[in-house]
Amino acid sequence: MARSAAASPFTPDPAAERRRLLGERGETIAARHLVRGGMELLDRNWRCDAGEIDLVLRDGRVLVICEVKTRSSEAFGTPLEAVGPAKADRLRRLAVRWLRAHDVHPDDVRIDLVGVLAPPGGPVEVEHVEGVG
């Protein structure tokens, strides 16, 4: 009996690959935007068994945990609409894990969101919201 290509775990999913590349592009754009705004990038795509932090930065004496959401259009809402209370809670838990893993004791910790709208062939828009959680 022949197996379908979709059943193979080794068959690449073109849509998933496009989403991954769009996400990577958005994180690069967000990191560049925040660094140009005066922040220092400390870590990117930090992972543990509880999840991933997109960007970890320092804004003066404040440690910033940053979630980046990237979209190519607003057909399914703005990038920032993709972050709800459950994600904010997870980011707070991940912040504690990052601090413990790096033995860092900042004066304060802030959760920020960056939404990147990157339409194909169009201008990129970046929206930064400080202190969401």
Results as ranks from 00 to 15, higher is better:
M1S: 14
A2S: 14
R3C: 09
S4W: 12
A5I: 07
A7T: 12
S8C: 10
P9T: 04
F10M: 11
P12I: 05
D13N: 15
P14L: 11
P14C: 09
A15S: 12
A16E: 14
R18N: 08
R19F: 12
R19K: 15
E24Y: 07
E24D: 14
E24V: 06
G26S: 08
E27P: 10
E27T: 09
E27G: 10
T28Y: 06
I29H: 02
A30E: 03
A30I: 01
R32M: 05
V35E: 03
V35F: 07
V35P: 03
V35R: 10
V35H: 00
R36F: 02
G37F: 01
G38E: 04
M39E: 08
L41P: 03
L42F: 01
D43M: 08
D43S: 15
R44L: 04
N45P: 03
W46C: 08
W46Y: 09
W46R: 11
R47F: 02
C48P: 03
C48W: 02
D49Q: 08
A50N: 10
G51N: 09
I53S: 04
I53F: 01
D54Q: 08
D54H: 08
L55S: 03
V56I: 09
V56S: 07
V56F: 07
V56C: 12
L57D: 05
L57N: 04
R58N: 06
G60N: 12
G60R: 11
R61V: 08
L63T: 08
L63W: 03
V64S: 06
I65D: 05
C66F: 06
C66I: 07
V68M: 07
V68D: 05
K69H: 13
K69I: 11
K69A: 14
K69W: 13
S72L: 07
S72R: 14
S73I: 09
E74Y: 10
F76D: 14
F76G: 10
P79A: 13
E81I: 02
A82N: 05
P85Q: 08
P85H: 05
P85E: 12
A86V: 07
A88K: 09
A88P: 01
R90S: 02
R90N: 00
R92P: 00
A95H: 05
V96C: 12
V96W: 09
W98A: 05
W98M: 07
R100A: 15
R100Q: 15
H102C: 05
H102S: 06
D103Y: 04
D103F: 01
V104M: 14
H105C: 06
H105D: 13
H105Q: 10
D107L: 11
D107V: 06
D107Q: 10
D108C: 05
I111Q: 02
D112H: 01
G115M: 13
V116D: 04
L117P: 04
E125R: 15
H128E: 07
H128P: 04
V129C: 03
V129Q: 15
E130M: 06
